[in-house]
Design a protein around this nucleic acid. Structure first.
Length: 150
DNA sequence: GCCAACGTTGGC
DNA sequence: GCCAACGTTGGC
């Protein structure tokens, strides 16, 4: 899961009540579908910091609540307001994630790109804008191993 | 249903 | 701040 640390970093997640936050504000159908259809309670998640000084994987979180409506879409005062969302058809969904681990150092995008095992990872590919992308078990374990070395 | 125009993302 | 790569919108 990508996030801009200036807006919401892995530290913000750690400092949230119960170290848990709803992943609100996703307004892209593919990303929404991943949350709505694929992400299950107990699934582990890599937290990726984008559009910042220190780009890369910052740590690990866990899905603690499966898909439920993202009601910020109904809130006119929210930056995530969507006039097409209604109570009956909320249109946007989110999961809740809980902080598990912050890596000692962010594993940079440049480092990720150097790893042969990660060459098919969506996030290292050019022009990858999707804010939520699947990670294979092999990729996940490999990144965890890289983190342990840091 | 096509596709051009436009808006957004995100690395550099 | 630039720009490439996408996603979305809306006219036809």
């Amino acid at each position: 899961m990508k996030t801009e640390p200036d807006a919401f970093s892995i530290t913000d997640l750690k400092n949230s009540p119960k170290k848990t936050a709803s992943w609100e504000g996703v307004r892209n159908y593919q990303a929404r579908n991943f949350m709505r259809d694929e992400m299950k309670k107990g699934d582990l998640v890599l937290i990726y910091h984008s559009s910042c000084k220190n780009i890369g994987v910052a740590g690990i979180a866990e899905v603690v609540r499966e898909s439920h409506p993202d009601l910020t879409a109904l809130d006119k005062n929210s930056p995530y307001f969507d006039p097409k969302a209604t109570e009956d058809e909320p249109r946007w969904y989110m999961v809740d994630v809980r902080w598990i681990e912050t890596f000692k150092e962010v594993i940079s995008l440049a480092e990720l790109k150097e790893e042969k095992k990660l060459e098919n990872m969506t996030v290292v590919k050019k022009g990858s804008r999707l804010s939520i992308t699947p990670v294979s078990l092999v990729e996940f374990n490999h990144i965890k191993k890289m983190a342990a070395k840091a």
